[in-house]
Design a protein around this nucleic acid. Structure first.
Length: 909
RNA sequence: GGGCGGCUAGCUCAGUUGGUCAGAGCGCCUCGCUUACACCGAGGAGGUCGUAGGUUCGAGCCCUACGUCGCCCACCA
């Protein structure tokens, strides 16, 4: 790999990231084959597999993709380092309606529609679009550092996946799980296609509730047959029934008025006939329990052709279904005088006419939930139409069971409830779309519309020949499949299904499915039932759902809001590693994250800190690190090595629990607060000293600890860790394939405890210096009465001298002190170590007494608290032994401290 | 109408199985260019962990209500 000889003072991510990625990719380090070839894993090893959620080829990656890529890359790099046979498959999604919509918008700029081009030319145009944006997306993913196997990359409309789609469709069709039917579907009048329930977004909107009265046909009599609009319309009526509606234009499609069967206000009207305004249709008054008595007037107009509730009522009562709208939401000939008008214009006109006819009782403000097309925002129109559906009940049941019995685990767990709720109430899935971009439905119709599902036209003809006994003309269904039909096959289609491939046998089921929680129904649920149905096995063991990234105001990032955060710009600003690290450490699984500029800068600063830790270490190392005798380890060495083991254990545990954010934070805190601020500082004494052996030991420990920490950090920050690792003594070609660290037997409780006392002593001296405004450059005298700790404190004298700026010539360390200096600041550290700082000329005895008095009070409070805890009934026998012991130790320490402080205070008095 | 999530220092957020968990970053205050780093170092101020109950020897962490913000689902026209 490329070597930058001199490490610049400030980390420059751009100098390393792109060349490094190229080097990894060219060496095949992302491929499981390489792991095996290098002996780092084997075909028999446990596998780790992720199918990357295929981004849409509609544009550029957004910050959510960066989150997805980061989390998945972290898991992938971790498992790869552990020696699991690791495969992460990238790909992209043709995104049917979304992509068609953006290309149509582009065409519109040229003043064209897709119909001007025709199906073939249009689809060609979309393919061009796809090529362009596909390249852009994959380039962007590379910049994010994803360790995916590019040679296994897939696209939902490539040859293999298209064959998978056909296979799945035909299999479901032959099992009777796919059917074609007329149904009231969500229709987008802009996209001119049906969309699924999931693709409808409901928004609360301010609307109105119109109260309209319909004249009743007199019993045994008749009403005037004057046409609508004439003053005599409905003449002869003596009774009316008033209904309330939010959509008056649908009056034109009413086929009944319904009341609640138990509603006494209307019992006498059930069975009567009302005359429908606008189109003068006689409609019955019926009783149905779905009617809310309290809402409106308690009488509801029934429009089975344009409202789901009404459709259900209509089904129950055998009402005719009248569709009053064309596919573009204009009124058709069923709308009589209103035919040809747009739905909203028809509404206005009809309301005006109703008012003129004296039928509008009142209009009141009303908020209602209006469905919009997920893609284009157009208000959805429920319309009767013929569509293809997947029967969900038989597919949902095993999919529910797989999560219920734990074969699939969802992280965080609370999403399981959401999954169950949806799956248990799932309705049949409309899979046909009236689009041109997508997998065309593999069904051909004979002259009598008999359907034949087949892989291709010849096969359909063969079926038709057998069915009819002779050759017939066939025409293929014009529609394409919902884009999620193909992505639902993703975990196995990317591995070669329907063929029985080596990859499929090795890497199915996948290990983890990682994505944002917003597509749990769209995608996750569908992969689960498709996997179970097609493969007879779960598609993955674990579903990990990350939160959504939001801006500082908590809004989703989106182009239309104008707050889009371009991950490529962020990378320009702070580098990929900083972006990744920040995304992970400022988030927690399943919870939305507000990503702030400040946090990104902090991430960048950490990378720079690490860079400089690396520079320091590298500059301190000789060309060849000599073998080191562990006998030569100082307290500092044993402490940092012990902490390294602690960290390794903790980080590994957190990785296994999917707690990546916490793991990242612990690595950062270790590197910054312990390694850099303490160990590196302490090591300088030996590095700059004349004892060659001591120097070598410090060098070895520095290199060892940093090398391990880099491996732990590598999944988060692949670029900087590889760059530094390559320059440190290491084994292997790349950190990517270096073993994941395991504790090395360095844990040393004594070293940690002793080092903590030294650190506390140093901190207290620094604190005192600061309080007494001692100039930083001035070295001060100190006397330490260390009691039983004398020996090791003495051994740490050089460190204390350097870090607390104590003058070596005036530094006394004794076991005990007969006569402490009066003119001195006194400090009580940990288990009874006393330090005196005779700050000549600076000591203010009043101030010192005041300080000590406060400390005595604090300690007294702690003693009381701990005593109370220990004396609490039940504590000593119910709490675990270590907790009780901990409290006793704490009490003993506080008591000793209290005693020392009091003695000192007395002697000053 | 159901369900879910957030509510922890001025701001943005961590806090894994209930027992050193009251934390970090930024901001603020005092110092400091000590030959890795000013994208830095040292010290400091700052919170009754939304409210009220409860379980427990012990609760940001579990239970029950409530408040508040947000999200998801749902055929009150």
């Amino acid at each position: 790999m490329d070597q930058i000889k001199e490490l610049p003072k400030t980390y420059d991510p751009h100098a390393v990231e792109e060349p490094l990625y190229k080097w990894w990719e060219e060496n095949g380090y992302f491929k499981p084959e390489t792991q095996v070839a290098m002996g780092q894993s084997s075909w028999e090893a446990p596998t780790f597999t992720i199918g990357m959620p295929p981004p849409n080829v509609t544009g550029a990656l957004h910050i959510g993709h960066a989150m997805t890529a980061t989390v998945e890359d972290i898991m992938t790099r971790y498992h790869r380092m552990r020696g699991d046979l690791t495969l992460w498959v990238p790909g992209s999604d043709h995104a049917g309606i979304a992509t068609q919509a953006v290309v149509e918008r582009r065409l519109a700029d040229e003043g064209l529609t897709r119909h001007d081009l025709g199906r073939e030319k249009f689809v060609e145009r979309v393919w061009q679009w796809k090529e362009h944006y596909h390249r852009r997306i994959t380039d962007q993913h590379r910049r994010l550092g994803v360790s995916v196997d590019w040679e296994r990359e897939r696209f939902t409309m490539d040859e293999g996946l298209s064959r998978a789609v056909l296979t799945a469709f035909i299999r479901l069709y032959n099992k009777g799980l796919i059917y074609r039917d007329d149904y009231l579907v969500n229709w987008c009048p802009r996209c001119l296609s049906v969309i699924s329930d999931l693709e409808v977004e409901h928004h609360e909107e301010q609307g109105a509730l119109w109260y309209v009265r319909y004249p009743l046909v007199p019993e045994g009599g008749e009403l005037s047959d004057a046409p609508w609009g004439s003053p005599d319309w409905g003449k002869g009526a003596t009774e009316w029934i008033t209904v309330a509606t939010t959509r008056p234009e649908t009056i034109l499609g009413d086929t009944a008025v319904a009341v609640h069967p138990g509603d006494e206000r209307y019992t006498h009207l059930i069975g009567r006939v009302a005359l429908l305004p606008g189109v003068s249709r006689p409609i019955p008054i019926i009783a149905d329990a779905a009617v809310e008595r309290e809402f409106g007037t308690g009488a509801v107009k029934v429009t089975p052709g344009h409202d789901p509730t009404d459709y259900a009522i209509g089904q129950r009562h055998g009402l005719p279904i009248i569709s009053i709208m064309n596919r573009d939401a204009t009124i058709n000939q069923e709308g009589g005088p209103y035919a040809g008008l747009d739905r909203y214009e028809a509404r206005q006109r009809l309301v005006a006419d109703l008012e003129k006819a004296g039928l509008l009782v009142k209009k009141q403000e009303h908020t209602l939930s209006v469905g919009h097309c997920h893609r284009c925002g157009t208000v959805i129109e429920p319309l009767i139409s013929t569509q293809w559906f997947v029967k969900m009940k038989p597919l949902a049941e095993p999919a529910i069971a797989a999560v219920r019995d734990g074969r699939i685990r969802i992280v965080p767990e609370h999403f399981e409830k959401i999954y169950f709720h949806w799956m248990e109430n799932v309705r049949d899935w409309v899979i046909s779309r009236q689009l041109w971009w997508g997998h065309r439905i593999p069904v051909w119709y004979g002259p009598d519309s008999h359907p034949f599902a087949a892989f291709d036209a010849p096969e359909a003809h063969e079926q038709a020949r057998q069915h009819y006994g002779h050759e017939v003309e066939l025409r293929q269904d014009e529609d394409v499949l919902d884009t999620w039909f193909s992505s639902g096959l993703w975990p196995f289609s990317i591995l070669g299904w329907p063929d029985d491939t080596e990859d499929l046998r090795t890497f199915y089921p996948n290990s983890v499915l990682e994505t944002g929680y917003d597509i749990i129904f769209f995608w996750v649920a569908r992969m689960i039932f498709m996997g179970l149905e097609m493969m007879g096995d779960i598609p993955f063991h674990t579903v990990y759902l990350h939160g959504l990234i939001r801006d500082e105001l908590g809004r989703k990032y989106s182009k239309s809001l104008g707050n889009a955060l371009d991950p490529m710009q962020v990378i320009e600003d702070v580098g990929t590693d900083a972006l990744r690290f920040t995304l992970m450490t400022s988030s927690t699984p399943g919870v939305d994250t507000k990503l702030s500029e400040k946090a990104l800068v902090a991430g960048r600063n950490f990378m720079n800190k690490l860079w400089n830790i690396g520079r320091f270490t590298l500059n301190s190392l000789p060309d060849k690190i000599p073998a080191v005798d562990p006998e030569q380890f100082t307290l500092a060495d044993r402490w940092i090595l012990s902490r390294t083991d602690d960290l390794t254990e903790s980080v590994t545990r957190l990785f296994e629990a999917y707690q990546f954010g916490e793991a990242g934070r612990q690595i950062r805190d270790f590197l910054w607060d312990e390694f850099a601020d303490w160990y590196v500082e302490m090591s300088k004494i030996r590095l700059q000293g004349s004892d060659a052996e001591a120097k070598a030991t410090a060098q070895a420990v520095l290199a060892t600890v940093l090398e391990r920490a880099l491996r732990l950090l590598h999944p988060f920050a692949p670029f900087i860790t590889e760059t530094l690792w390559q320059r440190l003594p290491h084994e292997g070609a790349t950190i990517m394939l270096a073993p994941w660290p395991t504790p090395a037997g360095w844990q040393d409780e004594t070293a940690e405890r002793e080092m903590n006392l030294v650190r506390e002593l140093i901190r207290d001296i620094r604190n005192a210096r600061s309080e007494y405004n001692v100039e930083p450059s001035r070295r001060i005298a100190a006397i330490v009465s260390a009691d039983a700790h004398e020996t090791f404190i003495r051994s740490q004298a050089p460190i204390i001298e350097m870090l607390a700026r104590v003058d070596g010539a005036q530094f006394t360390i004794t076991r005990s002190l007969a006569e402490p200096p009066a003119q001195a600041v006194s400090l009580v550290i940990g288990e009874g170590i006393l330090a005196y700082l005779p700050l000549a000329g600076l000591i203010d005895l009043d101030k010192e007494r005041e300080r000590l008095t406060k400390e005595v009070a604090d300690t007294q409070a702690e003693i009381e608290r701990t005593t109370a805890l220990l004396n609490k009934p039940g504590f000593a026998d119910k709490a675990p032994a270590n907790v009780v012991q901990g409290a006793r130790d704490k009490l003993a320490a506080a008591q000793e401290r209290h005693q020392k402080l009091t003695e000192r205070l007395t002697s000053l008095a």
